[in-house]
Design a protein around this nucleic acid. Sequence first.
DNA 1: TCGGTATTTCGACATCCGTCGATGGCTTGC
DNA 2: GCAAGCCATCGACGGATGTCGAAATACCGA
Lengths: 141, 141
Amino acid sequence: MAGPVLAGWLDVCQHRCMSNMELLPLLEPTDQAVEPCCPPLTERPFTAGEAETAARMFKALGDPVRLRLFSAVASHEGGEACVCDISDVGVSQPTVSHHLKKLKEAGLLTSERRGTWVYYRVEPSVLAAMGKLLSTAPAAV
Amino acid sequence: MAGPVLAGWLDVCQHRCMSNMELLPLLEPTDQAVEPCCPPLTERPFTAGEAETAARMFKALGDPVRLRLFSAVASHEGGEACVCDISDVGVSQPTVSHHLKKLKEAGLLTSERRGTWVYYRVEPSVLAAMGKLLSTAPAAV
DNA sequence: TCGGTATTTCGACATCCGTCGATGGCTTGC
DNA sequence: GCAAGCCATCGACGGATGTCGAAATACCGA
């Protein structure tokens, strides 16, 4: 029940973003290594589809609680954190779980159960893609 | 009726972000030139206040229509665009106006009336700040 | 097998948000 | 001054969203 809504974006973005770009950082010192889901915001007007895709990422970070949770995971030692390590954000525990699910559905986090605890870690390629989105196009091409 | 809610963020962020950083890009090749509103997401867990501030920015870009409008302005010639130039996003004119207002309240756009038309332009410093937010801390300090 | 802990899911609720049509304010040109 | 065009505001509506308590699920240790 993760939702067919997400399937589209996950398919499109992760598929296009995750594939082998950190595996060969030496070959291309250019920015081509990390292929973002959409062109930089300043390059040309977004199409409806691009906007739909990118907005889903921004929306996921558009809630203070989610942002705190995401930051907590991203800054945690080893790049991952147990839910119990980051649940102190002022809302109930079910709400924490709800927000973590949202972040996961947006492709920003992944989760893995190890024994009693569930660990969340950031999806670095998506972070890089969003960074590229916001970067003012460096006079490319 | 722009809202006292925004006043806080505008005060805090614009005040801290806009001041003289693009005026001296030559002095410091480091990243210190652009002072973001918050530390990078990966540096340490966000405080409640930081999350509130940053989430407002992400939220503003978390809607497909707003993202298209913002991209249209950002990519328009001269860095600014008349409302009439970017109104073709599939929603009614009042809705376009509504979203432009939201982007303006979030500090991402500024507007200026020149004769019959109203021109919107992007706030470059805020874009840079958001980019910094997403950048994985480059082994600083 | 059973109790305890960690996490998710469910159901419900109040609030926020995007959207529209109608209306109003402002500027230009006649 | 008056009609026309551009843009903002208003009021209303339906749907999405954040939040919680209660209950269900998953895992571990005894």
